[in-house]
Design a protein around this nucleic acid. Sequence first.
DNA 1: CTAGGGTTAG
Length: 449
Amino acid sequence: MLLLAYVRNLELHCAYDAFTRAQDYGFKLSLTSCNPLLSALAKENKIGDVEYVYKEMIKRRIQPNLYTFNILINGLCRAGKLTKAEDVIEDMKAWGISPNVVTYNTLVDGYCKRGSAGKMYKAEAIMKEMLANKIYPNEVTFNTLIDGFCKDENVLAAKKTFEEMQMQGLKPNVVTYNSLINGLCNNDKLEEAVDLWDKMVDFGLKPNIVTYNALINGFCKKKMMKEATKVFDDITNQELVPNAITFNTMIDAYCKEGMMDEGFALCNSMLDEGIWPIVSTYNCLIAGLCRKRDLRAAKELLNEMENKGLKANVVTYNILIDGSCKDGKSRNAEKLLNEMFNLGLKSNHVTYNTLMDGYCMEGKLKAALNVRARMEKERKQPNVVTYNVLIKGYCKIGKLEAANGLLNEMLEKGLNPNRTTYDIVRLEMLEKGFIPDIEGHLYNISSMS
DNA sequence: CTAGGGTTAG
């Protein structure tokens, strides 16, 4: 039917439209069309639409099945609505449908994702719950946990999970090794990552492009460009093809090293390999030019990118805004914010925080507070970074009372100070002989790290 | 028709 065709062509607006009007047109909706639509909407992170379609299904007496619930849970997890996702488990049981290993794995993954850092205990709790329900963890469950622990900077727990998985008689696969190698690279354990690579090969597993990208990133983070290049060159020897991420990783590293020529050269060689640079490729280069305080070249590259049919995104503008701010031209940065607004691009927390930081560094607290007001008008609540930026701004101009006021405001809102907050408070406030009202909290902060 | 891995911004 029509709806399914739209979903296949990823014309979700049309699919959604067809869905809402199906009844008027006398179409009978069925599970075989609703589930793919839900799945596509979930993958596009359109959780509102997912929930709407689900509710309509129920209203129209289309019986959801296991897939429907798994898709729904996946969508809710992607949107960070984890408690709601957990509630769905109860809903499905009420429908007489038992959760399966995919259901639980999806939830475990929800708690393992970057956005929910520090929630690994919840992921482990879900795993216990699945065991209590006699659903047994598989490779995916363990891989998800390993990745979660790595992203939580807990490599030790990741390694223990790796052992545990083998004790349960499950064999680590390429994804397992990729997660762990990547985790080791991102947690300053490059040598162990290389050892694990060798081990993986010994076990007869072939590294794929993701493995290569992870290790290249590891060398790049250590500024070992020679080694990174060696790994990069090895890709083609293995009948593998580098992709845009491979190139982006290398290009970004060169740009961060200030080696712009090498970065541009790689960008050009992408085309020779038949790989098209993507927006993020340009973003790396634009960021490199901004670091060199060459805003003009950065803007020119933005134009060049757009001439090639690539549309700038929020990250592009965040980079340019940051570049202008660091160049001491926060007013120009605010013009960029307006420009992105006119282009219909949605700004995010990073955008506003960056601009506020720019004004604060220039000592223009009033302008920074105006940005905050603008952000709140967009219904974006200040986050920890917002407070860090403003607190640092007040410290810089010596208004410690005001800084302390913001500190307490943030605590009252239930926002958890992070390491940066602590550094600002300790360095900028305590050392100036000002005792913040939050001594108790400070103790908590220091014991946290 | 449902679950896991790699790059980029504050």
